[in-house]
Each structure stands twice: as C-alpha cells, then as structure tokens.
Design a protein around this nucleic acid. Structure first.
Lengths: 204, 204
DNA sequence: CCTATGCTCAAACGATCGTTTGATACGAAC
DNA sequence: GTTCGTATCAAACGATCGTTTGAGCATAGG
C-alpha cells in the first residue's frame, strides 16, 4: 500500500511530470512516459485507469505539498508578523517547489499550461484544492492592509500571484546564473518578489 | 499578393489561433482547423508548408501588431513623461490586444502556452521579434529610475512582465464582470497594473 | 500443494494524426 | 484557343495515438 519512491506508480508520475512539462499533455505520449519510466506501456492504464487520471494525479501530488507548506508557513507567523512576512509565507514555498531538483520546476510549467489547456475542468480542480489557501492568505493580508477595501485587495493579490507564477515558470529573462546555487537563486527571487509586492500592496 | 480578410490564409490563421488557444498546438488537429475555417485539409500544407510553420505565422501576425503599438505609444511620449506614462505605454497595448474581439484573447493564451511547449525554438523566435522592444522600454524605465542599477531594474521589469502576462491570459481570479464593458475592464486592469508596478519599481 | 491476487509483459485494436498525391477548375498571358 | 501557374478538392499514405487483451510471473493464504 505504501509505495516506495521507486515503485512503478512513482516512476510513472515522475516521468509524466517531466514530459508533460516539456511537450504538453497531448504532446507527450504514454509511450514516451512509460519508456522514460522504464515500465510497460499498459502500466499506466493499470495503475491510473487512463491518461486523464494520470494528469490529475500529477497535479495532486505537487499541489498538496505546496498547500501544506504554505499553510504551515502562515501558521508559524505571530500576530505581529509584518506584511513582508506574510508575503514570504506565500511566495517562498512556491518558488522553492518550482526550483527543487525533484522535477518541481517541470511541474510549475505543467501548472501554467493547464490553465489554458483543460479549460474549466482542471481549473475547477485547482480552485477546489486551492480555494481555502487563498482565503486564509487574503485574510492575513487584509489584516495588514486595513486601508484597502476587499475589491482592491483582490486586484492586487491577483497581480502578485501573476508575478509569482511567471517567476515560478522561469519564463522571464531572469534565470538562474550558472554560478548561483539553487537555494541562493530562490532566496534572491523571493526577496525581490516580496520587496516589490510589498511596495505595490502598500501603495495608496 | 494582398490577401483579403476572408481569404483562405486568413481564415486558417483565425481558426488556428482560436483552436490552438483552446486545445494546444498538438491538441488541435489540422482537421479541426480546416473544418472550422471551412477550407480543405490540404490547404494548410499548401499555404504554410507545415503545421509548425502555421504556428509560427499565428504568432508573427499578432506579435508584430503588439510590437508596433507599443513602440508607437512609447515614441509618442515626451521627455518629461512620468514612470506611469512609460508603464502605460508598455501595459495598455498588451491588455488591449488580450481583450480584443478579433481573437486576441485567444492569442495570449497561445503565447503563454508556447513558452512551455516549444521549449527553446519558439522562445528564440519570440526574443528575436521582441528583444529590441524590451531594450527600448528598459532604457525609458532606466531614465526614470536612476537609483536602480541595471541588474535590479531587470529583476523588477521581469516581475512587471510576469504580472502583465498573467493578467493578459486572464488566468487570475479577477475577470471581467458581465456588466463591465471590455474597454472599461481594460482600463481598470491597466490602471491597477500601472499603479502597482510604479510603486514596486520606485521602492528603495 | 493449490489457488488467488497483484503486477508486468508483448501484441494488437481502432482511431486519428500530419502530410502527400493526382485530378480538377479557373483566370491571365501570349 | 492554348498554355501556364494558382488554388481547391477528395482520397489515401504511413505513423503514432490511447486503450484493451490475454498470457505469464511472482508471492501470500489456505
């Protein structure tokens, strides 16, 4: 029941995440996935039922991890935590996931792609697994930004999320330099994002 | 040589843009495209050579338009233009394109998807058609932000671009309300982005 | 020992993919 | 009127897709 990190299921998930990120959900075939995972082609349908269910599992695995990390970071804050502290609890786990060596970077590109690809189906799936996290953070932000009404706050949080998503996907011109360690790059990116976002959020 | 807006080529481009946005490059088949465009299946390979070349043309058409609009807006500014003015020249044409009724909204989702899908090939294509625009704006920003060194400026411009891209793709929770006109929504989004970005850029 | 269960395997299914072919229609050039 | 290049068409090409099948192998329970 507890499958090892090298079990067939896990190997399929790892390979699928990597290939979905690189070639898209439809672009990556199950034959590519199973070949990379060094398992039989039929193993996907045996363990997951279908390709669509495999895609869902790829999401759930990473998203659950991100959610719990974010909520833990938020819960660890005291009442007198600053706006920057809350921003860091929101931003840092996401950036860390996007850079981690276990294929998290691939996952973020999968995530970005999914918004467009599975138009409303996967979008609903994400909001279900994500809605309460957003609400908890929105409340924490609102407490530190009493001057903003709710509509204005949501506008700005949307902007923050956009900048973060873009940074996670490594889309931008700023990419990790070869002589910078991953941890250091994550710290730099998080620091810039937190600083920028704090100024934007506080602006009157 | 000058093909009408209803020519076979244009109809293919319109249909392809719409379907690529909805289903992805590999997810949308040429049979879907040609069926929607009401042209024969072979017309794509006749007019464009291959599916890949069609994808490139879908990009070039919209991107050239966005580039010229942005540069025109930048050129129209005086020397005493504010940081907000430059931001608006950068942001507003992009948002307008993303909302326009001629399928621009679809194009932006195609754009976002492309970053992940065609790993480096299309990425290079974009930087070639986009590099000088970014440089011109970077210079205009640098002039209004003398306190920022070059590295810091590029970090922050990357953040701005991220927030803008996200907003263009209509990914976020903020979407156009039914009772708000498209133009008004573009104005609102542009105003929020400009305001937020200006604060973030100016922050010490 | 026998059976049942979980898993893997090679092989094949029908469907759909991008692309190519060869025929046909049509207007301009000479 | 004939020729020539452009454009459209139905039909087919081989390749690859997701999925299914049925046999084979292992291990645990009786």
């Amino acid at each position: 029941m507890t499958d090892s990190p090298f079990s067939t299921k896990q190997r399929i998930l790892d390979a699928a995440e990597e290939l979905f990120a690189r070639h898209g959900f439809t672009g990556a075939s199950l034959r590519q996935v199973t070949s990379r995972a060094k398992v039989n082609l039929a193993a996907v349908n045996y363990h997951f039922g279908s390709k669509d269910r495999l895609i869902e599992e790829v999401f759930r695995r990473r998203l659950d991890d991100l959610n719990s990390r974010r909520l833990a970071a938020l819960a660890a804050l005291h009442d007198d935590a600053t706006l920057e502290d809350v921003l860091r609890a929101y931003i840092h786990p996401a950036l860390q996931l996007s850079m981690d060596s276990h294929g998290g970077g691939a996952f973020v590109r999968v995530l970005a792609r999914a918004y467009a690809e599975h138009d409303n189906q996967l979008r609903r799936f994400l909001s279900e697994h994500y809605g309460d996290v957003l609400k908890q953070f929105a409340a924490a932000f609102a407490k530190r930004l009493p001057a903003l009404d709710k509509a204005e706050l949501y506008w700005r949080l949307d902007i923050v999320t956009g900048a973060l998503t873009y940074a996670m996907a490594n889309f931008g011109i700023i990419q990790r330099a070869p002589d910078t360690s991953i941890d250091r790059h994550v710290e730099q990116a998080a620091q810039h994002l937190v600083h920028f976002a704090a100024a934007g959020l506080r602006s009157l």
